[in-house]
Design a binder for these strands. Structure first.
Lengths: 155, 155
DNA sequence: CTTACGTAATTGACGTGTCAACCAAAACGG
DNA sequence: CCGTTTTGGTTGACACGTCAATTACGTAAG
């Protein structure tokens, strides 16, 4: 039994609170904008962005999940929903009988090409424009550091 | 028709990508830890934290939603689920017939007091420990700036 | 060959979040 | 007062995410 847990000191707590609230508000607004401006959710956007940046708009299922760092069941459900709406299709993989490809359809391409400009505007308006170029770099660098730290850390 | 949208330049895009990936990975891990270490979800934790930091463990519904910056329907569903599990109760509001109070039950207190130490450890391990005190301050300051920027911004 | 084990991906159940519609009490304007 | 609008809060339908279990194929060992 840990007698007295090591609480965060006031400066740490303040930094954490600001970060968490900012992050939540930002991603919340962005995904609501996406949803109402286009017919894509944030999840749809991420998947289509990954696919369309890839050779032929196709990717192996597992590579896709790693690329966007999702769990495979999440991706499977997502791909299922997107397939139902005609944004992607599943294809079999010749060299591995268990494998699958996920492929962006022409509609998928159309959808993300339509959605991207406005989305980028919102990212710019809500996030990029809040900071100077130098501050933005700093934030990016610190984010990368936290990311690297987490990757060296168990689970 | 916008001829050529203003895309992010490479540095901006890099900063944005790092931030987004970091944030997603961090909150994902933290909420999975909460879920498996305690019997609270991240949402439960946020609500109970707000309530138990407040006089008498009770708050007006709307104040609660503003405090954690959620939409009211989200809060209503959440409170409903938590009430079903005995973590909170709803009470009527005498001075406003439409109003409601949300109150943390003893079990609610017990649950968050049990969950908090481990949760804080994870926050420390995954986030705080990744940065020096000075870097952490910087990140907090930049987050606050983005937050303030968003608050001055339409929707 | 076959048994066993690991890997690729799907499924189902359930908790969670969003949107739009709704309801009831309050506040306001005549 | 009475009708209208605003405010506080709930509801239902549906999209989304997680976990645990499952299917089906690949691979290596005896």
């Amino acid at each position: 039994m840990n007698a007295t847990p090591r609480w965060l000191d006031p400066e740490q707590k303040a930094a954490w609170d600001h970060f968490i609230r900012m992050q939540e508000k930002l991603v919340g607004r962005l995904s609501r904008h996406l949803q109402s401006d286009s017919k894509l959710s944030a999840a749809d956007y991420v998947v289509l962005a990954a696919l369309t940046e890839s050779e032929g708009g196709r990717m192996r299922f597992l590579n896709l999940t790693r690329r966007v760092e999702w769990e495979k069941s999440r991706m499977s459900h997502q791909v299922g929903r997107m397939a139902k709406r005609g944004l992607v299709t599943r294809e079999e993989c010749p060299e591995d009988g268990r494998g699958a490809f996920v492929v962006a359809t022409p509609e998928g391409y159309r959808a993300i090409e339509e959605a991207a400009p406005l989305h980028v505007e919102h990212v710019r308006r809500l996030f990029i424009d809040a900071l100077t170029q130098e501050e933005l770099d700093t934030l990016g660098r610190l984010s990368a550091r936290v990311l690297a730290h987490m990757e060296q850390q168990p689970d």
